[in-house]
């Protein structure tokens, strides 16, 4: 059971991140707070960075460094055009899949 939930979480994490980014742009730490606020997923926070890295490589998100008064800049992520299209398709897929699973339960 534990293994299964871990796999599901890992699988949907990118979907969750893209959904959060459609509203607003966020920097890493803030994004993690949003993930936690909106879902009960407990993750090692660090795992989010490789994930963001991958989403960036796949051109689903874009990022920019923004200088701060503290001298420690924040890296802001936002959904790219490609990401928006992709997310829409993911949502449709998600709805279809959850309704078919619902029938099985």
């Amino acid at each position: 059971m534990h293994k299964w939930t871990a796999q599901v979480k890992k699988g949907v994490l990118s979907f969750i991140v893209l959904n959060i980014l459609q509203e607003n742009e966020y920097y890493g730490y803030e994004l993690i707070e949003e993930v936690k606020k909106n879902t009960d997923i407990e993750i090692a926070e660090g795992t989010l960075y490789p994930l963001l890295n991958r989403l960036k490589k796949e051109e689903l998100v874009s990022s920019k460094w923004v200088e701060q008064e503290s001298g420690i800049p924040r890296k802001y992520y936002s959904l790219s055009e490609k990401g928006k299209i992709n997310l829409q398709e993911m949502k449709e897929y998600w709805v279809n899949m959850s309704s078919s699973i619902q029938k099985l339960l």
Binding site: Y27, Y29, Y49, W65, S70, I72, P73
Partner: peptide, 11 residues
């Protein structure tokens, strides 16, 4: 990556 982790710790 190092800068991003550093920023995470700071925030």
């Amino acid at each position: 990556m190092l800068m991003e982790i550093n920023s995470h710790i700071f925030e």
